[in-house]
Structures are given as structure tokens and as C-alpha cells.
Amino acid sequence: MTDSAKHLLVGIDLGTSQSAICTSEGTRCVVDSYVGWPVDAVARKILGKEVLFGAEAVDNRTMLEVHRPLERGLLKEGSDKDQQAIRELLGHLLELGGAAEVRRKGGKVRAVVGVPAEALRVNKQHVRHAMRGLVDGLIITSEPFAVAYGLDALLHSMVVDIGAGTTDFCVMKGRYPTEEDQRTLVNAGDWVDEQLHTLLGERHPGISVSIHTVREWKEKHSFIGEPPKKITVSIPIKGKPAEIDITAEIREACESLGPPVAEAMLDLIAGVESEYQERVRNNVILAGGTSRMPGLGRYLEQAMDEYGGGKVKVVKDPVYAGANGGLALAQDAPKADWEKLPG
């Protein structure tokens, strides 16, 4: 390493649907968490790449073996390909963030990676192994804790990080969150997609729509409460183009997310010492891609009404809140706290 070699700190939010990176050089990138390999030599020649990521992988999925290596916020187990996919995805993110270039020039890269609050140890170990050779130092942290740290909400607050695979809760009590301070639900964005997919199949027999299309509809039209307008989509039914109204299905699918999230939120608040509960209720922070669902914050506030009321804030930059928090942790972490990874 030369004296002039630049070092880089990065925060990574490894998500089921999207993964984001923020670096100390100010780079911010997000990619859809898809990795695809060409199925054969022809596909490889057409695509001109050995591996594709994100939207590009989804768009060309007919020519690819596509993997979404995370499911419900956790790495899938048992598949070498998924292991390889997570390593490729992390490598791609780090490449986008300029980390690979820094290392090529002899600099060192240290990364804080956020994982779901209750991620199993085996999943964290997978992340550790996947990061070997990609970075020089590593800290793995709970995703909602990273969000709280990045927002400087370190005391008497609660982060509800609603992603695609999981909804992660974390109460900040002035200590690093223990198991009792955190909760993970699998009721999140993907779960809403599945609800919507099922409802559409039940109510519109003959409809043929992929989960990808359903996800796009949800991302475009999701809401909780009174519908802002009638929602119609064009879809072939039994081969014939048709315009269908999916307002009720969207509402029902989205509103199915409210009760489990509210219940977990209230349960965790009940575990806070009574004199601090009001402060926590008034400092609930919604983060993650699904937090952009209109009406969700209001729904959670209403759920707190009978306990004395509360306030829910949606972070301004939900997609990057986790990665930003990871970067903030990386910038403040004592040198001794880093796990040194072999090159």
C-alpha cells in the first residue's frame, strides 16, 4: 500500500428487493437484488456479459438463470448458486461504490453491512464469508439499529424498517439492542405482493399475471385507508386484453400489513420502562422501501391512540436510510472493532 492510497468506508443495506451502498466518497447506489447468469452460450453472446444484476437481470430473465439470493431478508440456504449470487451482488455493489478500484490501488475498504434484526447466525456467517476478499474490514449490524444510528435516534425511539422481505423493529434504549429490543416479521412488501397476487387470481379467474407485474402495480398504487382514485390496469384475461379495477384488491392487500406491524410495534413499546413509553411512542420512525406506502404511518398512529397517542415519521430517504446508517457507523467505529478479513 502506498502512502497516497485512499481508504474507503462503506455502509451496505443488503435487502431482499433492493440493496444499497453509501460510501465515504459520497457515492450512493441502489440495485434490485437480482443476479442472473446467461443460460447458455447463445444467451451469453447476445447479452455480452457473464453476469447481470438488478433491473437488467429482470428485463432479460428469459435468457438468464435469475437468482434473488435473499428471501424474507435472509440468505437462502442449501444452494451454492445463491451463495455465489450474494457474493456477486455484494461485489457488484462494492464495484459501483468504487471499493474495488480503491483496493486495486492499494487502499483499504471497510464495510458495515446491515442484516435483519433477527437474522440467524448462519445467515450472518454467510455474509462474512461472502465478503472475504471484497473488503478488508467488516462489521455486521442489525439493519434497524443502523437506521437509528444514521438518524441519530439513539435513545427513546423505535425504528420500523419495512423492506420487501422483512419488517424489522428496534427500540433504542441507550444500549446496543438485544433480542428483547428487536423483532422481525416476515409481513413486509413481498408478503403484500403475495396477498395481492392471490386476491387477483381469486377475483379475476383467467387472469395471467406474474408476481413481478403485481409488484410493479403495488409499488405504483399502494395505499392504506381511503383510495385516492380508482386504480385500473390493463391485463390479458384468457388471451383478451382487458381493463380491470384493482382498487379493492390493492387496498385489501396493503391493509393486511397494518395489523401485524401495529401489534409488534405496540408489543415492543409495552416492554419499555413505563416512564419512557410516551417518548418512544412519539418517536416512531418508519424506514425501508415499503414505508413509502401512503397511509401506513397514519394507520400506526391510530393504533397508538388508545395507549395515549404517538407520532410516526417516515424517513425522507427510505431506500438509503440503512446504508447511510451503516456508513455513519463505519465512520465512528473504533479501529479495534473491525473484523479483519483475509485478502
Binding site: R121, L154, R175, Y176, A333, D337, E339
Partner: peptide, 24 residues
């Protein structure tokens, strides 16, 4: 001091992972 406590906890959590010890 609050941040120091948080980092102590974070470091412990990671060390348990690295040394494969039960949480806590």
C-alpha cells in the same frame, strides 16, 4: 458515552459471531 456503549455492544455482538459463541 451513549455512543461508546452502543459500540461496545456492537463489538460484542460481532465477536460472538466471529468466535461462534451464543448470543449474550
Amino acid at each position: 458515552r451513549l455512543k461508546q456503549r452502543l459500540f461496545e455492544g456492537l463489538a460484542e455482538d460481532n465477536l460472538e459471531l466471529i468466535t461462534n459463541q451464543p448470543r449474550g
